[in-house]
Every structure is written in C-alpha cells, then in structure tokens.
Design a protein around this nucleic acid. Structure first.
Lengths: 260, 260
DNA sequence: CGACGATTTGACTCCACTCAACTTCCGTGG
DNA sequence: CCACGGAAGTTGAGTGGAGTCAAATCGTCG
C-alpha cells in the first residue's frame, strides 16, 4: 500500500556458461505452435511468408517493449523469449516463457505492445507485419482458426499460472516450474535427461512471484529430497518425475501455450 | 511441499441481501464482448442464433464443470460468472470474473472443460453448441476474427492478473480488485456511485490468492484511509478513485476480458 | 591470482496465515 | 416480541513462511 521505493532486482549482464540455445525447425514443435503453415496451400503460404523476415537477437536483448507502437509480432524459430510486465517501482512479473514454434508480441493495448519480450537465450524469430497479417487472417478462416487455437492454449496456460502463483507454496511453485520446463525440454529434444533452464534465479523468481533467495532455497530442498539434481546452477536433471509432478501439482502436459 | 490436508473454505449457501443482478442487453457491453452480432449479415446472424438457446442459473449453480465433456459454451446476458480451478486438496483459484457480454466455457483441454464456471449471481446466458460454432467460425473469417479479439483481451487480462497475484501486497491486490470492479460497474451501468461486488470474502480471497481474513483487513485499511466506503459488506463506494488506482497499480481500463 | 557476478546460506524481520473469539445480520420458532 | 442458531464478516493473538539484509561460496574470466 505504501509506495516505498522498491529496489529493482539487479539484472544479470550475462549468464555465463550458456549451452547452445534450443534449436528447432517449426514443423517439429508438436503442440506448441501457431500452425501457420500446414493448413495453407502453396500460394497463400508464399503470401504469408512474404510478410515475414528472419531476425536475430542476443540474450537479454529486447524484441519488443511494452508501450511501443506495434509494428509486427514474432514467431520464434530458435531460443526462448520471456514475456513480462514491470511496474514503475521495478517489480516485474514474467508472464510467460515462449519457445520455438510459439508467437510473441501479438497482444496489444490500443495499438501498442501490452508486454515486453526479452530474449532469454540467443533468439531467431520470424517477424510478421501485424497489419498485413490481420488482413490475411480476415481472408483465411483456417488461419484465423489457428490463431484462435493458439490464443486458447496460451490463455489456458496463463490461467494455470494464476493458480500456481496464487495458491502454491514456494517449493511447490519451483517444482511446478521445473516440471513444466522438463516437459518443454522433452518436446523440443524428444528425449529425457538433464536440461538447461536458460533462466537465472532472478528470472525464475520474477516468473514465480518469489525472490531469488527463496528460489534457491526451494531448489536446495528439492535436491535434498532427491527429486531433482543440479548439474550446474541452471542445468537440471529430474530424478523423481512423479514426485516432482505431485509437489508441483502438474496433472498433465496440457496448456503449453502458443501465442502472446 | 507437504501434502497436508488443506481445509476447504466453507462455501456460503446463500449471500443474503443480494441486489438484483447486473442486467444488460448484449449490444451495450462496450468493449467487453465477443462481438458475435455486428459483423454478421442477417442470414448468418440467424444461422448463429439458431445455435444458441437461452438458459438460466441461480447463484452458486454450476454452468460447467472442469473435466466434463464440452458440449457448448455460454455468452452471458445477465449476471456474473466466476471461472475457476480447484486443486485436489481444496485450494481454489478464481481465474476470472466474467460479466454480461463475455463468453465462458470456451477453453478446452482435449474436449473437456478446462475450468469450472459458477454463477456468482443469478445468470442468464445464451448457450452455443461448440462444434457447430466452430464450423461456422471456420466459414466466417469475421467471426473467427472476433473470436481472436475476444481471446486476446482475455489473455491480456489474465496476464495482468498474474502480475497482481504474483507481485502485489495484500492491500494492493484488494485495491486492484475493487478498482477493476468499479470499472466494470461503470461499464455496465454507465454511471458512478456505490456498487455491488456480488462476491463474498471467500470468493474475493480465492480470486486474489489471499484468505478471507486478509481480505477483510485490507478492506478495513482502505476504509480507514478513506479510499473506499462500505455501505454493506459487499456494497462499496469509491471515495478516492485516484488513490485506489495508485494503490492497486491500475494504469488504464484496458484488458477487460471477453472469453474463457 | 584477483575481481566480479551469480548463487547459496545464515540471521533476522515482517507480512500474511492460522486459530479463535466476537459481532452482526438474518431467519426461525417459541 | 424475543431467544436462539447459523452464516458471514470483523478483529485479535500468535505463528510461520517468505522477504530482507548480509556474508560466504562458487565459477568464470581477465
């Protein structure tokens, strides 16, 4: 209630020791993509692709900033992007983490980006002109339907996150996050085993509504319980998947989102 | 982390002294509606309306239950509907509160409702067959576009809620909630003044990720600071709108959602 | 090695939860 | 009419979990 100054979490300049970013052609992103391509015939596909141009960002670079006038949105081809919103006093909430196949920068607030998109890793994305895409979508019902599907799953995911942030305890939240990241990893790489988080403690904290210290302590607890193992600070292996899901209240692999 | 039994909040049987429910024809729901009607010509409008039938629910009745097979979704004509998800141990998160003009019961998880919809007041809604609606949407780009728009604003609203639940303190959350409800009230009734919340403390708590006691204490604080006044326990008047928005970190009237 | 950033760990504080009492408001029935 | 009971809300006392502040450790890079 008091508007006392809220120290902005110092942002890491570079997360060192980062493994190569998740890399994946669009058509392998099972269940996670705005399926822009499949339902379109060759002519319209060309039309759509003509709207887009491939662009690259480095970790920590900003794809789009909240409040900036919307020009285009982005379909991720490689890497991870955080979608976030920050209060004046520095408090930040990472609303979603988007992966290859997903789209970001679509949500607008009277013509301006409603959120900020930041590269969590080096990112390659296809940038689409929003206005021309809307025109095309208005002419192609299947494209519009794909858009609606993508939005639906993103919405379901967001609602799920509300439950996590609103009702779970700190260790439960971290377990949930790790479980979801493990699922994502399996989707992208189609195999189990250790995986990278590509997010430092500060980013995880801002995603889960916790502090870096609490995230760290929760990870330690999960480690002590032999639910997970830490190869490095951001490289994790799930030792007891059932337990992790139980603690994190993950009932299924649904709701992995697609646009936002 | 421990799966200790979580006492389910006793659910009120009837909130007494409830004023008449918010009542509004679709076409007055500025900015809050899946604009099903306007873009359609007469023939298709008839086609769409043929899918729907008007139904009624009483307060606390369930419109749809999470996990049930989806048959139709609902466009609210009168009343308020809560969209929620409940964990096995009883912890519940009210993900959204939907008003006249909004749709609910659209989100699915492999053919089943992803959330539960419960009448917060007596409710009148138009029920649409989901399958036939999808067919119609696939043939009518403007309808699909309207759907996408509705989903977008619902998603923006959900993301906003994540920030509220994840980063705001208790009194800030309550202030945010009250500010949003005031906006909703003005949208529905087109005038300021005292308004009903139509939600008891338990429901507000489940929406904000708090307990009933904390909600109560926060309301008292806001009352003591002369930011709001309480006519009855669920009837509020905003005394200092600027202050309320400042505390609740409400920057604009955007993101009032539409579907989910 | 030494510096720096990221993370972990520790000590302490405080906000929100828990448990419990009490008040208020209805409705019911003696 | 008033007594009683039940439900919702408020308030108080005490606890606990997560935040805050600070120090120690680890890892990387110069």
């Amino acid at each position: 209630m008091d508007s006392k100054a809220y120290p902005r979490q110092p942002r890491g300049v570079a997360l060192t020791g980062l493994k190569p970013t998740p890399d994946l052609p669009c058509d392998r992103c099972v269940g996670r993509h705005l399926n822009l391509c499949k339902p379109l015939d060759e002519g319209r596909l060309q039309q759509l692709l003509a709207l887009g141009s491939i662009r690259h960002w480095r970790r920590h670079q900003v794809l789009f900033r909240a409040g900036d006038r919307i020009s285009s949105f982005f379909k991720i081809r490689k890497g991870l992007v955080s979608v976030s919103r920050t209060l004046d006093d520095g408090r930040r909430q990472i609303v979603a983490v988007r992966a290859p196949g997903d789209c970001v920068g679509y949500l607008d607030r009277d013509g301006r980006y409603a959120f900020e998109g930041e590269a969590l890793t080096d990112v390659e994305a296809c940038s689409f002109d929003r206005r021309r895409f809307d025109v095309l979508a208005a002419e192609n019902p299947d494209l519009a339907a794909a858009l609606a599907t993508a939005l639906s799953s993103a919405l379901a995911e967001a609602a799920e996150s509300m439950l996590v942030v609103g009702k779970l305890r700190s260790t439960e939240r971290v377990a949930h996050f790790l479980g979801k990241m493990a699922v994502l990893h399996r989707h992208l790489n189609a195999r189990p085993g250790p995986f990278q988080l590509y997010m430092n403690r500060s980013e995880i904290a801002d995603h889960l509504g916790l502090t870096i210290e609490t995230v760290s302590r929760s990870m330690t607890k999960l480690k002590e319980r032999a639910v997970i193992g830490l190869i490095e600070s951001d490289e994790v292996i799930v030792l007891d998947d059932a337990k992790l899901r139980e603690i994190g209240k993950i009932d299924d692999d649904v709701g992995v989102g697609a646009i936002g």
